[in-house]
């Protein structure tokens, strides 16, 4: 139980996908200006991350690796994620139109999002089991949500500030991200305590 909790804390806070691993920076900078789009995008990311892990983990562990085809990992994973996203889009459109309207527009974006491919690859470098991988995928998605929501708030405040001309636009956004990232470093000890390391 403690290990599960540890993985969750690790993936949400101390090894936050956006702020400490630099995965999914494009949507983090691009879609974080408005709170509602930030939340919509993050929910879609959580959904696809868990789903992608659920499919790719067994594929690698039971098909690719035992048959000596581990080198196909990258190409197989990206194709599966792309196909999966298309499939989810079709299913949602037909059976859950309300959910489709909320998340649908973000789905095509997520196919080429490095956070999703990154999470499916990271499980293996970290040596997680299947249930642990699913927890990690969920936690990473939630971490993305937390970072997006926090940052949307920071950017809203920034709108009202007078910013020196040479820092306007992207530079000040990145410097703000640096400060948010700095505050997340404060969480680094928590997960180690939980994991008993």
């Amino acid at each position: 139980m403690n290990v599960t909790l540890g993985i969750l804390v690790l993936s949400i806070l101390s090894e936050n996908f956006v702020l400490s691993q630099f995965l999914g920076i494009c949507p983090f900078l691009g879609v974080s200006k408005k709170l509602n789009t930030a939340v919509g995008m993050s929910l879609a990311v959580i959904f696809v991350m868990v789903l992608a892990t659920a499919v790719t983990y067994p594929l690698y562990a039971y098909v690719l690796e035992p048959h000596g085809m581990a080198y196909l990992q990258t190409i197989a994973f990206i194709l599966i994620i792309a196909a999966l996203v298309q499939l989810v889009e079709l299913v949602l459109k037909k059976y859950l139109p309300a959910l489709y309207r909320a998340l649908g527009i973000y789905l095509p974006l997520i196919t080429t999002n490095c956070a999703v491919l990154g999470v499916t690859l990271l499980h293996f470098t970290k040596g997680y089991t299947y249930p642990q991988a699913l927890v990690n995928a969920f936690g990473s998605g939630v971490g993305f949500l937390v970072a997006m929501v926090l940052f949307a708030g920071v950017r809203e405040r920034m709108e009202e500030c007078e910013i020196p001309k040479f820092l306007q636009g992207l530079p000040i956004t990145l410097i703000a991200a640096a400060l948010v990232s700095l505050s997340f470093m404060g969480f680094s000890g928590i997960a180690n305590g939980l994991l008993g390391a």
Binding site: P27, L29, G30, V31, Y106, P108, L109, T111, G169, L170
Partner: peptide, 24 residues
């Protein structure tokens, strides 16, 4: 002035959310 999203190849598919939600 563009943020990463606007130059993203999938930008036209996400209903312009990126461009408007993009950078200052």
């Amino acid at each position: 002035q563009k943020s990463g999203c606007a130059g993203c190849p999938a930008a036209h598919e996400c209903a312009g959310e990126c461009q408007t939600g993009g950078n200052d």
